[in-house]
Write a protein that binds this DNA or RNA. Sequence first.
DNA 1: GAGCATACCTACTCATGCGTAGGGTTACGC
DNA 2: GCGTAACCCTACGCATGAGTAGGTATGCTC
Lengths: 194, 194
Amino acid sequence: MLDAGVRVFSRRGYHGASMDEIADEAGISKPMVYAYLGTKEELFVACLHREGTRMMEAIAGAAAPDLPADERLWRGLRAFFGFVGAHRDGWSVLYRQARAEPLFTGELTVMRARMVEVVAGMLDHALRAEGREVAETELEVVAYALVGATESLADWLADRPEADPEKTATRMMNVAWLGAGQLLQGITWRPPGG
Amino acid sequence: MLDAGVRVFSRRGYHGASMDEIADEAGISKPMVYAYLGTKEELFVACLHREGTRMMEAIAGAAAPDLPADERLWRGLRAFFGFVGAHRDGWSVLYRQARAEPLFTGELTVMRARMVEVVAGMLDHALRAEGREVAETELEVVAYALVGATESLADWLADRPEADPEKTATRMMNVAWLGAGQLLQGITWRPPGG
DNA sequence: GAGCATACCTACTCATGCGTAGGGTTACGC
DNA sequence: GCGTAACCCTACGCATGAGTAGGTATGCTC
């Protein structure tokens, strides 16, 4: 039933989806949907939650905390893109629909914050291993950028059924790691004339 | 009048915005809106178009094509940040709305092509200067990642009034350039055991 | 088999909001 | 002063779709 919701929401968008169509897709009647999952808004949040949780679990399960940073990042990215590739509908619901609708931005902010926390923790861990340290804000910014870039590529992937998730993960890793790798070595770029 | 549209659309979202409210915001009556700009859908496209064009011009104007690649990227990024920062309720919000709504995917494809053209063209130019060449898809992916990261940082910035835009742009440049810089040198990361 | 609960459906109410019809107002020509 | 034309308004028609009322079938208890 949530599956039906996710399918229809991703096909039509939150507003374009009618409860009739969702009920139809699930093979039951509308009052049943209301009986089990409440209003349209609640139904959407339920879908959002489930897809988000599944994704988090997929990533957390892949990126074991005792691995070296690049390996962790790679596995995390691969799990992420693998998930998006396999659940294009779910991704569309999560990040396209939820982002556009002011009603759901709160939910989404929480999820992203958790993602950023994970990534920042990864970088922090790698830095401490080398005896270096960086202000928390600095890490947060880098993590934000990486998460944003990854989300963006996930969108790219979701629009291209022929694209390979594995290959996309590798590309992302190139951008993320070669950038982050330099940063971890203490190399920074400076604005000209600054 | 388009200004009113942009304001209301970004405040309420595409569906949440009513033509009455837009007309009210513009200080005229609804039939006037229809007389000048047609249906709600056409109005939205017009807003999207204008904001997108403005942003493109801001970036293209800042990043002169005869500069070295890092300088171009830096100026482009700064212009991008400046624009998104100054038009917080403008382009990025509309863009988000458009992505969620299947109605606008066509229009969006065109805009995206132009965006990618600007960012990827920058990278492509740098590559050709070194006599190297990379598949168009490859460039598109990198461009996507960079734009996504930048948007994400713009969000980060918007939530923190005390943060410095210039400094944030520098951080973004660090991630983007040190990553892209390595890539331009032909250095690529490979998956372990691949 | 009467009473009752569960599970589900058809068919409705009602609010919302896009798009428009038709009426008023001002300015100008004659 | 009267026609008329440009301009803009109020006030409505109408479709859509969220949420619900009230009915029907099946099964379970005593």
